[in-house]
């Protein structure tokens, strides 16, 4: 039962990763007892499970994920939201308006209009139907201020870091509030534009260097240097 790659080695779709007894995890597939990569990424394995941490992938909705989306349509029963996924998401009016909801009397565009950005949570999704959202949790709802940064959705875990170490470090260093959407959109709101600029810079650095190690330290260092006004090379 051989393994053909070491941990954290870069692979491309079609690369043979393992044979026989192994189990195919994320971004891999098994065919005729052989496990191949199905995306470009870094190999990882635990016990018998081989998987690839994708470097390039789009967001696929997952129940309980917090996402940031844009309202693209107001319908009689709710809103259609673009959450940067293969499918548009639905947000039902009954979820927002105090019940009982009457389509005749409620003015839905006054709550969320086309183009509004919202923070929401996925409550249901199974690929046969469009994902369903809710805003009935603290911290969810319309975005009033801040800056949005878009990064590849697969790199969100890297932005969060182990037990949130990365994101809490950026919050501490820049004094910005950061809301992470699992779909690759990140909301930053700081006291000054300079604080926000620093946070955006840190996020872009993470996206670019996500496949390398020791990243938290390098980002911390970069932020400290930038704050002192020293030219970073």
């Amino acid at each position: 039962m051989p393994l053909f790659y070491e941990k954290r080695q870069l692979v491309t779709p079609g690369d043979l990763l393992a044979e026989d007894d192994y189990v195919a995890g994320d971004n891999t597939y098994k065919d005729d007892g052989k496990i191949y990569a199905s995306r470009i990424g870094l190999v990882d394995y635990e016990a018998r499970k081989v998987h690839v941490v994708a470097l390039k992938a789009f967001y696929v909705p997952y129940v309980e994920d917090t996402v940031i989306g844009k309202v693209v349509e107001v319908t009689t029963g709710g809103w259609i939201v673009d959450i940067n996924a293969p499918y548009f998401a639905m947000l039902r009016a009954s979820d927002v308006v105090d019940r009982p909801f009457k389509p005749q009397t409620s003015d839905l565009p006054s709550i969320f209009d086309v183009g509004d950005l919202i923070i929401a949570q996925v409550v249901a999704y199974d690929r046969t139907r469009d994902p369903l959202l809710t805003v009935r949790e603290p911290g969810l709802g319309k975005i009033m201020r801040g800056q949005l940064v878009e990064i590849t959705a697969t790199k969100i875990p890297r932005v969060i870091g182990r037990k949130g170490s990365m994101v809490s470090m950026i919050k501490r260093e820049t004094g910005c509030q950061i809301t992470i959407g699992q779909n690759g959109l990140i909301l930053i709101s700081g006291k000054t534009p300079e604080d926000e600029r620093l946070a955006v810079m840190a996020l872009h650095k993470i996206e670019e260097e996500s496949h390398t190690s020791g990243l938290t330290d390098r980002v911390t260092e970069m932020l400290k240097k930038e704050k002192e006004g020293v030219e970073h090379t």
Partner: peptide, 11 residues
Amino acid sequence: LADAGIPMRDL
């Protein structure tokens, strides 16, 4: 296709 992150059997 690979750059778009679409899952593929092989290039």
